[in-house]
Amino acid sequence: MSFQPIKFYQTGTFTVGNRLLPPEQRSVQASAKRFNSINSGHRACQGCGEALGARYAIDAAMEATDGQLVCANATGCLEVFSTPYPETSWQVPWIHSLFGNTAAVATGIAAALKVKDQGGTRVVAQGGDGGTTDIGFGCLSGMFERNDDVLYICYDNQGYMNTGVQRSSATPPAARTATTMAVGPEPGNVFGQGKFVPAIALAHDIPYVATATVADLRDLEAKVRRAMEIRGARYLHILVPCPLGWGTAAHDTIRMARLAKETGIFPVFEAEHGEIRAVLPIRRQLPVEEYLKPQKRYAHLFGKQPHVEVIARLQALADRNIRRYGLLEQA
């Protein structure tokens, strides 16, 4: 675990705040003076996980850099719902790039700041899973390989949500999207395709790679803080449930992220220089059905005749994560 858990203070470190804690141990989000880097009035759907994840992450980065931050933002929901010209929700210096070149734009900003002797100002690049794992992947890998001084944050909602829920290389098997319909002998997205970019980032041996979800705020903030302590290429991959694309209730966003972590579907870990340092262990293990059932994109698995063999394959993927990352080991 990347932070010191607090025990027995009624809720320990599970809640956002805790009135019994000394101020220095409280989360950034608990502060009445937090930055609100992304402000009210944005046009994200009700219960948007991406809007929440972005505020969590960028507020933490602002806190860690004392407000000396520039953000480059790929095309995608995050850009579209936050910044319909001339309005913007961003309360940080922010630049919109294209769908696929954010990593390169951020590299350029970092280089320019260096040339202008403003190295104290730090750079964050951010985008969706489509912008990151598909179209922006070449720029991203280049940024890693050159060890450019950028923190790249991917908000993974497992599809091209902004254009109407199409499949991306981060869409999980069996999930229904507009381009992987729930029809035919193998309904939904096929097994055996796609990629897990955090593992690819790891293979670049860059200084810092971590995953997080919007269900574990303390963990997420600690990871951003750690990332900002380090210079060079850093990658943070945050799971952000999408009520629209996943077909979940707006109020279930955090619950879905929690279930993804507790079932082992989404491994939460932290690595430095290619080596995994810590994982956020599963606290109360659950079978994958608990995670799948509330989502309409998996509804075809739970008809009159449940597709037990497909569910078993998804369970096997979760089990592999648990083994691979040691998610059941005691913290």
Binding site: Q10, T11, V16, G17, N18, R19, Q29, G49, L52
Partner: peptide, 22 residues
């Protein structure tokens, strides 16, 4: 501190933190 404060706000900041719309 084991008390869960059932049904009464104990100022854990969760609502304040989890709102995607501030």
């Amino acid at each position: 501190r084991r008390c869960m404060s059932c049904g009464n706000c104990f100022e854990c900041d969760n609502c304040y933190g989890v709102c995607p719309d501030n």
